[in-house]
């Protein structure tokens, strides 16, 4: 059984695309589209890698990340942040909040794949 990747992303097309190419690479992919119950979903799915969009309905990705890092269970969880806003201060904020990787949309699929592979615990 492959490692688990959770994708929290409100754009269904993007989730679908990411799910597709990660699944094909052998990852066990779960998706979620809302911000407000993201923490529960993380607890429920217990992913090895988390892909987290910044702009989510209900709750922003930044807040979710901070909450995760405040929880001892998820302090080590690799988190890849995605954003469609091109602000450099978003990158700084994400890194300060504890993101493992920060990527700007549109990304290349290979890039994500590589990041997931690199970050997933051996």
């Amino acid at each position: 059984m492959g490692k688990r990747v959770l994708v929290i992303e409100d754009e269904p097309n993007i989730s679908e695309a990411v799910s597709f190419f990660l699944s094909r690479d052998g990852w066990n992919v779960f998706t979620h589209s809302k911000g407000n119950d993201a923490l529960e979903t993380v607890a429920h799915r217990a992913p090895d890698v988390l892909i987290l969009d910044v702009m989510l309905p209900g709750r922003s990705g930044m807040e979710i990340l901070r909450d995760l890092r405040a929880d001892s269970r998820w302090q080590k969880l690799p988190v890849i942040m995605l954003t469609a806003r091109g602000h450099s201060r978003d990158r700084a904020e994400a890194e300060a909040a504890g993101a493992s990787k920060f990527m700007t949309k549109p990304f290349s699929n290979a890039e994500i794949l590589e990041a997931v592979r690199a970050l997933a615990p051996q």
Binding site: A17, F21, R85, P106, N109, A110
Partner: peptide
């Protein structure tokens, strides 16, 4: 605007690569 433009572009690029 950046967000609104990049979001559909992300889908397009991702599926186009697939």
């Amino acid at each position: 605007i950046s967000h609104e433009l990049r979001t559909p572009m992300t889908s397009i690029r991702a599926f186009a690569e697939i």
